[in-house]
Write a protein that binds this DNA or RNA. Structure first.
Lengths: 189, 189
DNA sequence: ACCTGAACACCGTTCAAGT
DNA sequence: ACCTGAACACCGTTCAAGT
């Protein structure tokens, strides 16, 4: 028996997937959770706080997925590629969650920021390993990570908006662009 | 004396800048345009169509800005860099318009797609010139353009979400990442 | 501590009617 | 062709009250 709070977050996540933030009405969330339409206010300050909880949960889950990817691969270079493809795959599978996580938060969202920082730190560590292995060029690992992440992020966002030129054109989708960048970066090998 | 339609789009743009799509209420749009709260329905099918008109106008303006950049610079390599920095500057100055343009459109938006295709085609042409001048590596120009645009786009989006690691850290912002990528790409020179 | 039901101000959209 | 005013169903949020 899950707590009411967890049930509310679950219902809100399902509604996000179905129609984005506008589809998340506190009334429908309450309905699905089997409580009144304003029971959510006993667990969250307002609608945005509920959405922030959904985003935080998602980002925490992504950090765990990244750790799993690190555990499943040996060579850092291969792992970096797998991690970026994992990011792309997640965003394409759950576009509304992706948009939510990086959406416009009107207030500060400390928990969300913490989750984001944690996930990024893990990726920075992985990139640093790949640099030491000669799979990626030298330089500030944080900055190189930002480059890789920005490319993957932007490729997905443009693809979701239908603004990526050749959608059907073989490997020109987000995964293809990630691979292109890795090829261009080369590394010492 | 501007047409009612143009006045409505103008008012909607101002409201977008002030608070995003949620701040664009047809009632407030009508109020600012000096018409009733449902006069917009005589010019647009619904709220989303009004927002699409705002986005289309913005994207058309961006395409013009890109052409101006092409006219202002001689060397293609320099022009590509200026164009990408122009994109970043626009997005950082008008974050709500940026989010709107690439936001989730529930219906097809033909005019918006046309404007986007036109703007991208201009950039592809510029990239091809830079390739011929040896300022960018060879390969499918559309694909290389997608790489450049995806990086600039993703860097801005992450920066707006506060998810770019070192904000104050000198040149690690969106413009810095664009420059990093151009350096990594090198070209024949 | 957690929840309910009524209420308030607001919104997108529709409709009948005006010029 | 363009606009208005009333109306409908809906929503976020607040509040008094219950256990």
């Amino acid at each position: 028996m899950a707590s009411t709070r967890a049930t509310l977050v679950e219902a809100a996540t399902a509604l996000i997937d179905e129609g984005g933030p506008d589809a998340v009405t506190l009334r429908e969330v309450g309905r699905r959770a089997g409580v009144s339409h304003n029971a959510p206010y006993k667990h969250f300050n307002d609608k945005e706080a509920l959405l922030a909880a959904v985003a935080t949960r998602e980002l925490t889950s992504r950090a765990a997925a990244l750790e799993a990817t690190r555990a499943a691969h040996a060579e850092p270079g291969v792992t970096v590629r797998a991690a970026l493809h994992g990011y792309v795959g997640w965003a394409l599978e759950w576009p509304r969650r992706f948009k939510l996580v990086y959406g416009p938060w009107s207030k500060g969202t400390p928990e969300l920021d913490v989750a984001a920082t944690k996930a990024r730190a893990s990726l920075v560590g992985l990139v640093a390993e790949a640099q030491q292995a000669g799979d990626l060029p030298d330089g500030d690992p944080e900055r190189l990570t930002a480059l890789l992440l920005a490319l993957a992020h932007g490729a997905v966002d443009l693809a979701l908006a239908g603004h990526l030129a050749a959608d059907g054109k073989g490997r020109a989708g987000p995964d293809g662009l990630v691979d292109d960048l890795l090829v261009h970066l080369g590394g010492r090998r």
